[in-house]
């Protein structure tokens, strides 16, 4: 499903973000990626949806060979992945429903299917009544739910989340986690970079800890392991 073999990443400014990462994530897994700020978590995540290219090493995601993937084929990789961000990344001028629909329009889904599917997913994330509301009129928790709905709507086999609860209060954070748990129960792989100790220690899953660009710990049902 997701496979990294001895992956290195050096940025143009000379930063060594990743120094030899090898990891294997199978279908249906739920993985936390933890570690101090600047350890390389975000780079690790960005390589998976080909926001960044590895300097060295091999990466396979959903059958796509990332290092060989041509620029114009990137959209097809991204359609097989749902991505959720700390800052939600919703299109500000589109309503919640249109934001979710956008991910379907991109793959030329017929209109009637779009409408039905958007309603379905928005109900799944508990926002069935907020379809026509603009993002800036929603709370942070609600915006993140819309983002999750958008990530989900194509039925991707993997959801990648970069600090999805980073901007949310505890209550909303638990709401999002409950959603992820439900999505994972249906067989979708989830990879989530996080700083949230409570969550990692409560919903016990596989934990990959990255420090200085290396994996220093990889435990199933692991703990957060840092003080903050």
């Amino acid at each position: 499903m997701i496979e990294m073999q001895d992956v290195w990443k050096e940025y143009a400014n000379g930063t060594h973000a990743l120094n030899g990462i090898s990891v294997h994530i199978t279908k249906g897994e739920f993985v936390y990626v933890v570690g101090p700020s600047g350890a390389g978590k975000s780079t690790f995540i960005k390589l998976m949806y080909r926001e960044e290219r590895p300097t060295r090493g091999h990466i396979f995601v959903n059958g796509f060979n990332i290092e060989r993937l041509k620029n114009r084929k990137i959209p097809y990789l991204r359609r097989s992945i749902g991505v959720v961000f700390q800052d939600f990344k919703l299109l500000p001028r589109l309503t919640a429903g249109e934001n979710v629909a956008y991910a379907l329009e991109v793959i030329s889904t017929p209109h009637r299917h779009i409408r039905k599917r958007v309603k379905e997913v928005m109900e799944l994330v508990g926002l069935g009544d907020k379809l026509d509301v603009l993002p800036n009129q929603l709370s942070g928790g609600e915006q993140q739910r819309v983002a999750v709905a958008r990530a989900l709507v194509n039925n991707p086999s993997v959801i990648i989340a970069d600090e999805p609860t980073g901007n949310l209060d505890p209550e909303n954070s638990w709401g999002i986690m409950k959603l992820f748990q439900r999505i994972n129960d249906r067989g979708t792989t989830i990879v989530m970079a996080t700083h949230n100790k409570d969550i990692v220690n409560t919903i016990r899953k596989r934990v990959i800890a990255i420090e200085n660009g290396k994996i220093v710990r990889d435990e199933s049902k692991g703990m957060y392991g840092y003080d903050n």
Partner: peptide, 16 residues
């Protein structure tokens, strides 16, 4: 450009 970035993230082709 943020809008364009988001479009790319959800898998829109350049042409789209």
């Amino acid at each position: 450009r943020r809008e364009i970035e988001i479009m790319r993230l959800v898998g829109a082709t350049n042409g789209f």
